[in-house]
């Protein structure tokens, strides 16, 4: 199968993720959309690795996974504590950091 198709799929996933980040208010959904974007990137990295015939892309994909795992831990913790204090998971409600 033509590896370019994987790139199309990655672009599609990335767009879905970006759109979700922009239009959804629920922090959990926004968070999942971010994960979707990260995985779209991983997919395109692996596709490139395949196309160019070296392993660099795959290695970077591993790194991305590690970073994403760490990020999930921190992010979910923030979301949980946000929900506990404000009784809401809406990102628009947490708009205190402004001038």
């Amino acid at each position: 199968m033509n590896p370019v198709n994987y790139l199309y799929l990655a672009a599609l996933l990335f767009t879905i993720g970006a759109t979700g980040v922009l239009i959804r208010r629920n922090a959990i959904v926004v968070f999942m959309c971010i994960e979707l974007m990260l995985n779209a990137c991983n997919l395109s990295l692996i596709a490139f690795s395949r196309m160019h015939g070296n392993l660099d892309g795959q290695i970077i994909a591993f790194f991305t996974m590690v970073v994403a795992a760490a990020e999930v831990v921190v992010g979910l913790a923030i979301i949980v504590s946000l929900f506990r204090t404000r009784h809401s998971a809406s990102v628009d409600d947490a708009a205190l950091m402004k001038l």
Binding site: V21, L22, I23, R25, V30, V91, D92, A94, A95, L96, M97, K98, L99
Partner: peptide
């Protein structure tokens, strides 16, 4: 700088 995370994302 309005505090809305989504507008920063935009």
């Amino acid at each position: 700088q309005n505090g809305f995370a989504r507008s920063y994302a935009v």
